[in-house]
Nucleic acid binder design. Structure first.
Lengths: 160, 160
DNA sequence: CAGCTTTACTTGCTTGGGAAAGTTAAACGG
DNA sequence: CCGTTTAACTTTCCCAAGCAAGTAAAGCTG
């Protein structure tokens, strides 16, 4: 939705800003996904799951915690983890202390995979975002992002 | 991927900025889609198609032009337009001057639909983005978005 | 302690998108 | 002017995601 979208009520400045933001919203995730797919045969979402696990104590988290961290529904997470399980990068066991919980852990192979995939990802984010912005702009982007996400949260009911 | 993602090589400031941006990247499109779906039973993408048509001469564009405007593959567009056609909001005819092109046009019903859907969409973008930013921040966001999208374009081969 | 409720997932169904093969129409080369 | 390319779609196949229904373990209630 690059340069179309809601003209009617916006003045020129807002319209151009919205067009630029809409392009960013579409292209940046696509760029990240595409690099991850190409270099590591993972979706960005799957990488996020494995990265979160690699950062946790014992490389283990409850599915519900992981769902929060990865900003996804339990259903989406369940399938993604199932995929990762077939590749032997993650395994699931019922929590011994409460059988309703499921614990997901990275395997050794999974740890390797994350370590292999991370540098390329960090590089790309650096190139696309931080290297193209001045330190001042980076701070501005930080503030702006926080403001908009707060507004979304305030708007109500639909962060997963 | 709210607050996980690539820690390793980023300092704290970059990490927090990236976390905030990643959240924005996930939530803002979801918020827009969700409003559009709820109020008008359209995806944001379908709305974009119809909006682009409503803005064109005779409410008509070639499929390939429309694909560029809506930043999508021809395949995705073809299906989306097929869906809109079954609801009688859009119709397709071969271009009489060159049978390889297909012309997509809004029907009268489609025009009405766009007019009905637009105000709510504009409102939401206003509330989530422009009302939460100062005029200075709006200009900053404009510049920042342009810089990042240029970097993506420069990075090469994968805007559709 | 038997039954209802709640919590934490998982699974079946349907839908949308990407990749690649198929189709039809112009263009070009000999 | 006939055969091959190329362009512009369209369609088929497969996978991922949302929704809603299903399941199993805890907890609570009378």
């Amino acid at each position: 939705m690059t340069d179309l979208s809601p003209a009617p009520a916006f003045d020129d400045e807002k319209l151009e800003t919205w067009a630029a933001l809409a392009t960013l919203l579409e292209w940046l995730p696509a760029a990240l996904d595409s690099q991850m797919q190409r270099d590591s045969d993972l979706t960005h979402f799957e990488y996020g799951i494995m990265f979160a696990l690699s950062d946790a104590a014992d490389c283990t988290l409850r599915m519900s915690t992981l769902a929060t961290y990865s900003n996804s529904s339990l259903s989406r997470l369940s399938r993604a983890v199932a995929r990762l399980e077939t590749k032997n990068w993650v395994c699931r066991v019922p929590d011994p202390s409460d059988g309703r919980y499921t614990l997901a852990s990275l395997t050794d192979g999974g740890r390797e995979k994350v370590e292999q995939a991370t540098p390329g990802h960090v590089d790309l984010v650096s190139r696309l975002v931080f290297d193209t912005l001045t330190p001042t702009q980076t701070r501005q982007l930080h503030n702006i992002s926080l403001r908009i996400t707060s507004a979304i949260r305030a708007e109500g009911g639909w962060q997963p």
